[in-house]
Design a binder for these strands. Sequence first.
RNA 1: GCGCCCGUAGCUCAGUGGAUAGAGCGCCUGACUACGAAUCAGGAGGCCUUAGGUUCAAAUCCUAACGGGCGCACCA
Length: 554
Amino acid sequence: MPIVSRLDEARQHIRRVICDFLTQEGHAGLEEFVRLDVPTEQGHGDLTTSFALKVASRTKMAPRQLLDRLIAAWPGLESVESLEAAGPGFLNFTLNTAWLAAVVPAVLAEPETYGNSEFGRRKRVLLEYVSANPTGPMVVVSGRAAAVGDTLARTMAAAGFEVKREFYVNDAGNQIATFGWALALRLKQLAGETVEWPEKVYPGQYVVDLAQEYQALHPEVDPKTLAEDQYAELGAWAAERMRKSHEAVLREFRVTFDQWFSERSLREAGAPEAVVERLRQRGSIVERDGAQWFTSTQYGDDKDRVMVKSDGSFTYFVPDAAYHATKFDRGFDYVIDLLGPDHHGYVSRMRAVVEALGYPPERLEILIVQLVRLLRGQELVRMSKRGGTFVALEDLIEDAGVDPARFFLLERAPETPMDFDLNLATLKGSDNPVYYVQYAGARIHSILRQWRASGDAGVPLDVSLLTEPEEKDLLVLTARFPEVVVRVAEERAPQHLPKFLTELASAFHTFYRQHRILDAPPKVRQARLALIEAVLATSTRGLDLMGISQPEEM
RNA sequence: GCGCCCGUAGCUCAGUGGAUAGAGCGCCUGACUACGAAUCAGGAGGCCUUAGGUUCAAAUCCUAACGGGCGCACCA
């Protein structure tokens, strides 16, 4: 793996020394046990390893004894100031602060791209997320998938992957006809007709708005004459209208896509027929009870799945299968789907069809983004598009603001179900940690502004003057950022970003309270200004990966 | 009944097989005549749901209970 950060560089120096030592001691082949971790606690150095404990059973040597030999033979490294055995067999390293401080000029050389790496080796990734049905407004739950998907896309791109983002639009099939039906009924109501409302037709108020819009655009259409054979066409109009509104709301939420992939376009191109035919040729289709079944149980699914119903129409699964076939045909190395928990029953059949079509199933990665449960006080707010009750993402953005909403949604691991109270206190109030992070940045902006206004020409930069413990904490964190980016990308775990940024902001606030910057002697001032500028660049970049702004004043 | 996710501080949640399990909020005590107090320093608060197992070492891995959520259609 290529070196991604200054901290990682130290890690690899140390690792090489330890591996060489083990080889000299006659214990070659234990490299996999030599891992350098960032300790969870203060007082355990800057990097720590427990390799001595892990290899004890193979080397037949007590961990502490092995470490004593290693320390005696330690060659000295520029990056390492000191090392110490501790506990039952840990080895803790304190890094050389001056060596670490080289991260500052490195960040300042390219502040906009700090954190980027070639970890992903330009592998091509297709991320599909949100893909909400265009039969109603975007709800809060989709906002979570949007925030997670967008942040993964940004972060994976920073980590050196070639990322494409797609939203799959279910703009065909029964639900669109049903949607058209709802629109027709609303049009009839607007025309003064009394209509009976069937249970399965979307009752939401937004359909009335659509009806009024439609009426204005098409005054020539007489609602009273609308009949069932026109529902599909009405539905298509309404679905495209909703899709555009999804696009607008998501753009406001700072979420964009490279492509809005239309199910209808797949159907028009005959892709569903083609995919069924391909499965048939591979012997994965059988006829039973007048329907055509995909024998997905051969590929680990719990039951076979109907592809072509006995009335000759496709199940919704067929276009989805065809869509996934296009993903692989387009040559992506990784195909990642973010799905809601209501689709988890769908994972094994999707995997099955990918395998049955002859694609490597391990390249399909399905992440389940869990629910956001909305509470009003103690009471659970039930959300149902069909039932007509929901909270729109639009309202959330308006009430809370994009920055607080995104930070909140990204703080939790995607697979953790989360609750939040609709009074939004924790979301938009000043206790939202997003302000803590942004405030640190605003403070730095303020200091830099004052320095620039002072007209001070400055002195040559010497970062070796950064020797205070609070300065070192900032250096270590700044040096670590690129591997945080890698970790988020690799584990598909966006929550590490807000966690890291909170830690960085905390370290800055502590430093700021403890030490003077502008009032320090010129050389120290110069070094500290460079340090905080690097911290600001790091924090701003981290927020940017989360789609969150860094205000210069607040 | 079967499957997936989750049970960690009062609340919302982090936690990479490692050391004394962390953060934010809330609660208590302190700190601005100094670059922004949306801040800082400190404190209280834990049987990591339970019971077994693997391991030198388990919140983490395995098994089984229990509790919560969500799925389980020739619906999408």
